[in-house]
């Protein structure tokens, strides 16, 4: 894509220079690490007590990403609007799609870099506690695929919010609202008695998806939903940038 690479390099540099990005990464690892610790400790106390634990961990992760994604994305467009660099950017010979791609890819790469240290937790655990590391490769791969798909979707929502709002704070709040709306949409069919309510809930609920994946049960339908949703959110972001030329 024309101009995509220089833009991506610029966005990555901006991310590497941003204290917020490091703060978010540190808090993310702290909270996710604490969750992991709690899971390990409760499994050690009650080896057959894993029912509900996976769901609890999934909730922990989802709430962490719900807080991290807006913090990582809220400045991406809102800051360009505030400082006026948006005009310089949009009058360069690049398509809005290239700008969206570069900002999104930079946020996603930072998110993957944030996830990477968690790969060490298994080996650290076995070194410290003389416990065998979690060895079910399907479950580990499933958990990471889930974390990446859900993270990618939340970042796309955050980027969209940043393109819509002129201020960083408003963008962050809108992103939180969108992500929270999606998190709780999965509950509605359970709470609101419908004929096939729990089946619908199972399809919508990110907790069910994440718990399934991290048990090694890979339901490709859910993966497709996240990929399609992410693409739609990015497309909507591109349209917002185009709309700004007409507003």
């Amino acid at each position: 894509m024309n101009g995509g690479l220089p833009l991506l390099r610029r966005e990555l540099n901006a991310c590497l220079l941003s204290p917020t990005a490091y703060l978010v990464a540190a808090l993310f690892l702290l909270v996710a690490g604490a969750g992991f610790w709690v899971a390990v400790a409760s499994l050690a106390a009650q080896p057959d007590g894993s029912v509900g634990l996976v769901e609890l961990s999934a909730w922990m992760f989802l709430l962490t990403i719900a807080a991290a994604a807006p913090l990582l994305t809220m400045r991406l467009f809102a800051e360009e609007y505030r400082s006026g660099t948006f005009e310089t950017l949009m009058t360069a010979p690049v398509r809005p799609a290239a700008v969206v791609f570069a900002k999104y890819a930079a946020a996603l790469l930072w998110y993957l870099a944030m996830l990477a240290p968690t790969l060490l937790w298994g080996p650290i655990l076995s070194a410290v506690a003389a416990l065998p590391p979690p060895t079910d490769p399907a479950a580990i791969a499933g958990a990471y695929v889930g974390a990446i798909l859900i993270g990618a979707w939340c970042l796309a929502l955050g980027l969209f919010a940043s393109a819509v709002m002129r201020s960083q704070v408003a963008a962050g709040l809108l992103a939180v609202a969108l992500i929270a709306g999606w998190l709780f949409a999965g509950w509605v069919p359970f709470l609101w008695p419908l004929r096939h309510g729990d089946r619908l809930g199972t399809w919508l609920s990110p907790v069910v998806h994440l718990a399934d994946w991290s048990r090694g049960i890979f339901d490709s339908r859910a993966a497709v939903v996240y990929l399609v949703n992410t693409t739609l959110a990015l497309f909507a972001t591109d349209r917002v940038l185009e709309w700004r030329r007409w507003r």
Binding site: R10, N13, A14, L17, S83, G84, T85, E87, T88
Partner: peptide
Amino acid sequence: HAALYPDM
């Protein structure tokens, strides 16, 4: 109002 990236 020519705006530039201050961090570059």
